[in-house]
């Protein structure tokens, strides 16, 4: 094996299919990014890190629209996920979002603004304090973070700010899925004359009030964010609550 693993990692590898175990490594960024050590310092300082193929980050290798790059993080193959932090090494604002899957699987789909070609990564902290890191390179022609939001030019969004629409699917191939869209400009503050204005927190709870997931969002999340969650089963309505950095709050019920 090219990168020697610690005893803990070897024990972990023994539980995995051979192909996945072979891809585990504790050093040597598989995406070979010049900014990896900065990222590690910023987000994972002092904690053990494992590049882990069970953390799947799905995104197109070439982003046709840098303002709306779809990203899906699937860490459901990892047991005991406490926190997931998503970042893009070369973005002017690196941190995209954090999510804390509580009663929902560690799965989240969303879209991001990317300024240039960059790794998009998810670091997943498990209950034992280890960060499991997965990621993928996204090539883009740029313009995502310093281009104005489409809403910026119009006044309509002001009346519709934080308007939520969404649905759950209780059967079919996507049973348990929840999708939600929120009207918000998600201004990064990097466009001259437009201050940062973005959603900061979204909570999803089931009908009994039990939290499914908490999501902390940052400037790079795309305008009018769309989130995809996967519940164990779509059992009753979900309440979504949240607020932006100017204190505008919302509460919405998502039915099936």
């Amino acid at each position: 094996m090219k990168y020697p693993l610690t005893i803990a990692a070897i024990a972990l590898a023994a539980l995995m299919p051979p192909a996945e175990a072979a891809a585990l490594r504790e050093s040597g960024d598989p995406l070979d990014s010049a900014r990896w050590s900065d990222m590690q310092k910023a987000f994972l300082a002092g904690a053990p890190v494992l590049f882990d193929p069970r953390v799947k980050v799905i995104a197109p290798s070439t982003a046709e629209n840098p303002m709306q790059v779809p990203v899906t993080v699937d860490a459901t193959a990892l047991p005991g996920v406490a926190e997931v932090v998503v970042f893009a090494d070369f973005n002017p604002i690196v941190q995209v979002l954090r999510f804390f899957p509580e009663d929902a699987p560690a799965f989240l789909g969303f879209r991001v603004k990317l300024q240039q070609s960059t790794p998009v990564r998810a670091a997943v902290r498990t209950a034992d304090g280890v960060w499991h890191v997965g990621g993928t390179w996204v090539n883009t022609v740029g313009g995502g973070c310093t281009a104005p939001s489409a809403a910026g030019g119009s006044k309509e969004w002001q009346q519709r700010l934080n308007e939520v629409s969404g649905r759950q699917w209780s059967d079919g191939p996507n049973a348990g899925r929840l999708r939600m869209r929120i009207v918000h400009p998600m201004d990064t503050g990097l466009v001259a004359g437009t201050p940062a204005f973005f959603l900061e927190e979204i909570n999803f709870a089931d009908a009994a009030g039990k939290r499914l997931m908490r999501v902390q969002t940052y400037e790079p999340v795309s305008e009018n964010p769309v989130f995809t969650l996967q519940r164990v089963s779509a059992d009753g309505p979900v309440e979504a609550t949240g607020r932006d950095n100017n204190g505008n709050a919302f509460t919405a019920r998502i039915d099936q």
Binding site: I58, P60, P70, V71, T72, G109, R167, W169, G172
Partner: peptide, 8 residues
């Protein structure tokens, strides 16, 4: 309608 995400 089937609940697919853009990556799907």
């Amino acid at each position: 309608k089937d609940g697919l995400d853009m990556n799907d």
